[in-house]
């Protein structure tokens, strides 16, 4: 969120000793596990080197596709909701502003699993929405166990991660630039397109990443709101570890998923970087 303007990666008072705790942490809990994933992905159950796990992957091509499509949809919906919200929020007075950002953060204080689970009671056939609809003579509609429910779950859970980075970027917006645009005769739309949008781009990119990545790897949402009938790639990975006990295949799928995520982020950063030297804040 606040990594937008780090121009000097090594500040003068850089001190390796201060960084030691985190370095140790990231080696043990990030670097080593990554190597373990790679190791499992290229070995079989006996530990011998093999490409078999990777060769299995085309079997899951369609699932990869479904996951990508759902995540892109969820990310776009998040962006459409979050961008105007963040814009208006950044222009509010201090009081309501704090109130609103509180309301956005509040759901994040509650566990993600519980929030998803509560959607079941809202969307179920005997749930809140359908009970109301039936009272006015519509329905019951099939809301739960549909792709729509899965995307809704993603949007609901990850929306704050889109709002907050954009909001932070908007706050940093230099108001004299907006005034200059007005003075020079730009229409409000022109001002949005030429000034606000480019300047808030780092926030947008960061928001997209923070929504897209968890969406594409989620498994709980699809199981609870999709009825276990639509499998996402996260579900397939979870299944390998939890029930099929095929760690090697699970690791291979995870590895490819990571590569795919990296590629899509790189592509996105490439476009964002073109005319904005302040981009490139992710990865």
């Amino acid at each position: 969120m606040n990594n937008a303007k780090i121009k000097n990666p090594k500040p003068k008072n850089y001190n390796p000793i201060i960084c030691t705790p985190y370095t140790v942490w990231s080696i043990i809990f990030i670097i080593v596990p990554l190597f373990m994933v790679a190791y499992y992905a290229f070995t079989d159950k006996t530990g011998a080197f093999t490409f078999d796990n990777i060769a299995e992957l085309p079997r899951y091509a369609k699932t990869f596709g479904i996951s990508l499509v759902y995540s892109v949809e969820a990310t776009i919906i998040c962006l459409i909701i979050a961008y105007p919200l963040a814009y208006f929020m950044s222009n509010m007075k201090a009081g309501p502003k704090r109130m609103l950002s509180m309301l956005i953060m509040l759901p994040m204080w509650m566990n993600f699993l519980i929030r998803t689970y509560s959607w079941i009671t809202i969307l179920a056939r005997t749930g809140i929405i359908n009970t109301l609809l039936e009272k006015i003579g519509i329905g019951p509609l099939k809301l739960i166990n549909t792709p729509g429910a899965i995307i809704l779950g993603m949007v609901y859970n990850f929306l704050p991660y889109m709002v907050l980075p954009i909001y932070t970027a908007m706050l940093k917006l230099d108001h004299s630039l907006l005034e200059a645009a007005d003075d020079l005769g730009a229409s409000p739309f022109m001002r949005l397109r030429k000034v606000i949008l480019p300047l808030s781009m780092p926030g947008v990119i960061s928001g997209i990443t923070m929504v897209f990545v968890p969406c594409v790897s989620t498994f709980y949402i699809s199981q609870k709101l999709g009825g276990g009938k639509t499998m996402l790639i996260g579900d397939v990975i979870e299944m390998q570890f939890q029930s099929a006990y095929n760690y090697n295949l699970g690791a291979a799928i995870s590895l490819i998923l990571m590569v795919l995520i990296l590629i899509s982020l790189a592509v996105m950063n490439h476009f964002a970087d073109k005319d904005d030297e302040e981009g490139g804040l992710i990865v």
Binding site: I120, A124, R125, T126, N145, G227, G228, K229
Partner: peptide, 21 residues
């Protein structure tokens, strides 16, 4: 069966059967 199935469940079965879901 999948086309007529509502969902695959384990523990959720309690809630779903009790609520008439």
């Amino acid at each position: 069966q999948k086309s007529i199935l509502q969902s695959y469940v384990m523990d959720e079965i309690y809630q779903k059967m009790e609520d008439g879901e």
